[in-house]
């Protein structure tokens, strides 16, 4: 085996290991294992038998195998960028929703506090009204 083949396959195994270590829910974990195994098989085949990739490239109308790989990588990167963008947008919207809810809740709380206080003040006044000026204590 060539050194480059060892390095490529080794780094794939490393990345696959890291991505599978963080277990989420069962369904998406199963899906991820499926994706990792099939992509891994593809990469291993391409790395171990470079001629195979070139013949596939020729078949679809691309000169060299490496070029075909480059094009595929470009598409994958574009997909990832769009995907990340959409996810970030969703996260931004969630943050906005949170901030809004917090602002409304805080104002609501303050509102009821002000109302309660003004009610208490009114109560105070009515209670004290009969004897606003209590007679000075004889000293």
């Amino acid at each position: 085996m060539l050194l480059v083949q060892v390095l490529l396959i080794g780094s794939f195994v490393f990345v696959a290991f890291i991505s599978l270590r963080h277990r989420t829910d069962d369904r998406s974990q199963a899906l991820r294992v499926g994706v990792v195994v099939s992509v891994g098989a593809l990469i291993a085949t391409a790395v171990l038998f470079p001629g195979l990739v070139t013949s596939v490239a020729n078949w679809v109308g691309v000169g060299r195998g490496a070029d075909l790989v480059l094009y595929i990588v470009a598409v994958v990167v574009m997909y990832l960028v769009v995907n990340t963008h959409l996810r970030m947008r969703d996260i931004e919207r969630s943050i906005t929703e949170l901030v809004r809810q917090q602002a409304i809740d805080a104002a609501e709380r303050e509102n009821t506090m002000v109302e309660r206080r003004s009610r208490e003040i009114k109560l105070d006044i009515t209670e004290k009204e009969p004897g606003v000026n209590p007679a000075p204590r004889a000293g």
């Binding site: 943050i95 901030v99 809004r100 409304i104 104002a107």
Partner: peptide
């Protein structure tokens, strides 16, 4: 009445 966003949105 003042509502305040804790972050600029």
């Amino acid at each position: 009445v003042v509502l305040s966003h804790v972050l600029n949105r």
